[in-house]
């Protein structure tokens, strides 16, 4: 088998803000391989560099030094537009504040991800969206605007938007920080289900101890460095 199981990787990656007068090292010599099927938690206190790592993996940010590989492809020399296309093709995003488009309905928000890509026909888009809504147990809420949905429902729509394009990698930066405990667990459960049933690769950042326990792979971050990278056996929800 020549096909690699690595979907994304950071190699000797550094990210330094304000180089010169007052530099802030947000990421220091990070080496991290994301493997297909990972359910990975980036854990660490606030300011430890979790978001920086996610942003670099998501091609939203570029390391000041080192490389980012997406599906074995070095992204360091790509243009902004090419990076943009990598995001729309291969990476799903779930945000802390859900960030749904307010004028679009739940269903349209999910379709939106495919329309940005522009390579899926309308019939298939509808079909996939309906299936996704059903999976997320949102099939009766597809017509609602985000403002008519609860936080948990909105984040479920956001998960649908991230997954609809079958991305190589889904990145979630503190996806439950704006949700109460019960809803947080529900969201993580859905992500975990998707991971197990469909093999979707998840990387999520959190500083919540309970949530860290739900990850199969736990990467601890401190001061921009990876402290530990452990596979947790026997994690259950």
């Amino acid at each position: 088998m020549t096909q690699t199981t690595t979907v994304a990787a950071l190699q000797s990656a550094h990210r330094i803000y304000n180089p010169g007068d007052n530099p802030v090292v947000a990421m220091a010599n990070v080496n991290l391989e994301i493997r297909r099927g990972d359910f990975l938690a980036l854990a660490g206190p606030s300011g430890s560099g979790k978001s920086t790592i996610l942003n670099c993996l998501g091609c939203l940010d570029t390391p000041t030094q080192g490389r980012v590989l997406i599906l074995d492809k070095d992204t360091s020399l790509l243009s902004k537009q090419q990076l943009s296309d990598i995001r729309s093709q291969h990476i799903g995003f779930i945000f802390q504040s859900f960030n749904l488009i307010p004028v679009l309905s739940a269903a349209e928000n999910i379709e939106f991800a495919l329309q940005i890509r522009g390579d899926i026909g309308p019939a298939e888009t509808k079909e996939r969206t309906a299936a996704m809504l059903k999976r997320l147990r949102l099939n009766n809420l597809g017509h609602r605007r985000p403002s008519q949905l609860s936080g948990g429902q909105q984040q479920r729509v956001a998960i649908g938007r991230a997954l609809i394009k079958n991305p190589a990698l889904v990145l979630a930066d503190e996806p439950t920080a704006n949700l109460d405990r019960a809803t947080s667990e529900e969201i993580i459960q859905i992500m975990r289900d998707m991971n197990e049933e469909m093999g979707v690769t998840f990387v999520f950042a959190t500083h919540d101890h309970d949530l860290m326990q739900k990850a199969r792979r736990l990467v601890m971050v401190q001061d921009g460095r990876i402290q530990s990278d452990t596979t947790q056996t026997g994690t259950s929800l």
């Binding site: 998501g58 939203l60 902004k80 537009q81 943009s84 296309d85 990598i86 995001r87 729309s88 093709q89 990476i91 995003f93 945000f95 504040s97 960030n99 488009i101 307010p102 939106f112 991800a113 940005i116 890509r117 938007r161």
Partner: peptide, 16 residues
């Protein structure tokens, strides 16, 4: 601004 940032993050091209 946030909405535009979201669309850019999702991979919508700047020209779009």
């Amino acid at each position: 601004t946030t909405e535009i940032g979201t669309m850019l993050a999702l991979g919508m091209r700047r020209g779009t």
